[in-house]
Design a protein around this nucleic acid. Structure first.
Lengths: 204, 204, 204, 204
DNA sequence: TCCTAAGCGAGACGGTACGTCTTGTCTTCCA
DNA sequence: TGGAAGACAAGACGTACCGTCTCGCTTAGGA
């Protein structure tokens, strides 16, 4: 019985994989907004009604597909953490992030342009904000003045990161390396625009 | 001659104003993405084909409508500049910006959510990036290390600003005042997360 | 295989039947020219875009619908031919024609008025002309003078028939019986206006 | 006063003439049904709203324009009547008619095709039916049997005439002369298909 | 000579219909 | 049972055309 179900599940999963792959290809080719369900099913060699057996709409498929990308990111960060002797910090994280973006450059370039998806961008803001608050802020928290919510600073960092990525992909055409980008991100978050203060210089 | 033309233009302008007002109302009510042309023309008491006499699509109307909002912003910034004895700097600018957002809170709350518009958000990134580079960065530029493009820092600042606004509107529910927000923005850009350094304290 | 296809075809055919019926009803009610696609689909309880799945436009639907009417006519003529011992002649044909018109009086009354369709009327001219040339003229052909194309006489007969029908429906209000009309048609074609010639009298 | 009005009327009349000419040109060029008011006013170098100052719609303009053509026809028939020593009969009339059609061949070719106008064709039927009843039938009337309405025969003749013209223009490509056509019409109405009867031969 | 009233050009607009596109649902059948 | 195939309802799209309106120019007669 279980085997029977599994066979079907595997078939189901295969169809979903085809749909996810099709979406990802199409996002790069024509932009997220311009895609419609028919495009996706055609590319996936799947009947259009079948799409609705698995996903409610294009956006549900998108967020479902993101799992794969995020799995890649999580693995990458896990690596840096392990390599960094388990101490996860702003520096390592950024490094992994920018490498991850470089890995999926075409995807992010589209999604962070006017051919992308609002829901994705907003999601990214919130996801990164949470990440920053959990992982990057704690070491700094004691020093923050009382009236300043740490979430606000996390929002700043998340925004800065996204702004930086958008610039990197769409203006800078990825001429800077992921490491350079991570360093800029790092420095900006550490000391804002005051790069001249020798006492603030980081060794990395 | 000019007078002759104006009569028709005034009529045209009136219709456009109706359309712009309708859009702005509807954005707040049901979100930008959910609006269709029929909604707009119905609200504006205008025939649907008339819409296309003036604007190519919903997005063109949106960007055209933004002019009004931006005029408000420009005026506001001009005020602060004048009040600030003509020295336009990061501090004043941010203050004006956050007041401007507060003024149009409902609009920005929607547009910076998943019911908003990608094109608008991306535009905002680029507009703010340009603004930052032109107006906020110059005083700091001499101190920047050679390898770091100033545009990247502008991108950080623009992103931080947007991230902050998104947080303020959608998480913080505008419990912080525009002044407090501007101060956070200011401090973050000046010295990142190192708020404890007494030498960096700003008097404002 | 054939059975599989038939299920879909049956559904399709049902929709088409609904559209045809709706058109026929509406022609009688408001005239052909005044009908628009929306009227038809509304009456047929079918979505407007569905119309275009089956027919290019109103006229294609009309000509497609005519098949049914013409099937009726063909059957009727077949009957008279059989009854007439297989000798199809002008007399029998006209009889069947006028009975057919009587059967679909409301339809023809509209279509042969200024609320009708040019294309239909012209089609009728040409169809009848062909019919006359094939079936009615041959017995008379040997006697025709050399310079007179038989097609011209067929055109005369076709025109006369249509003119007669138009008069019967719209002026005479069908007070004459189909048989009387057929006799007039018959006599006119046989001997024009010279009804007094006893040698030409027909027994029918 | 009268003179004042006339000047304006002349201007008005000029505009109307331009519109009529434009319509007539366009009918030949693209068919009556395909014409829209804009086409007409553009061709006439007149503003579109001006059209409605003079005519309710395309059809009113058409029927108004026909006056010119019919004036030509009336004149032509008057000529034949005068030439024929005042005895207007079927023969002369037909002759004039076919010459008239030849004169306006392009117009009639279009109007008696599926690019024409129902209203015009129906009008033609009725007009010719009246004409036939008034001018062509009387000499034959005494001989008609009681049960046969003379109007029915007029309808036959009118129809035959139209059928013949349609054939002449659209099938025969006007290879027959107007005189030949008139003779066919004449003969057909006089003795139907029995052209062999020597006693019926006409001298003309 | 100016005045003035009509015809008209120009263009915006409300409204109706068009033909198309996309979405989401349904049904029937096959593997 | 999952999926293919296709018909369909629903609704939005952008366009075409209609008929009406308003505005201001032109022009030709009468004051």
């Amino acid at each position: 019985m279980t085997d029977m179900i599994r066979k079907e599940d595997r078939r189901k999963e295969r169809t979903r994989q085809l749909l996810r792959d099709a979406l990802m290809e199409l996002i790069v080719e024509k932009g997220y907004e311009a895609i419609n369900v028919n495009d996706i099913t055609e590319r996936a060699n799947v009947a259009r009604p079948t799409f609705y057996l698995h996903y409610k709409d294009k956006q549900e498929l998108l967020f479902n597909s993101l799992r794969e990308i995020y799995d890649d990111l999580a693995a990458r960060e896990m690596d840096t953490i392990v390599a960094g002797l388990n101490q996860r910090n702003l520096d390592d994280m950024s490094d992994a992030d920018f490498q991850h973006v470089a890995q999926h450059a075409a995807f992010y370039r589209t999604m962070l342009s006017d051919r992308g998806s609002v829901a994705f961008i907003i999601q990214m803001f919130r996801y990164l904000r949470g990440l920053m608050q959990t992982h990057a802020l704690p070491p700094f928290q004691p020093d923050l003045p009382a009236g300043v919510p740490s979430a606000a600073l996390a929002a700043c960092m998340a925004g800065a990161q996204i702004g930086l990525v958008e610039w990197w992909l769409n203006e800078n055409n990825m001429q800077a390396t992921p490491q350079e980008m991570a360093r800029i991100m790092h420095m900006f978050c550490l000391m804002g625009l005051n790069w001249d203060d020798p006492s603030q210089k980081v060794s990395s």
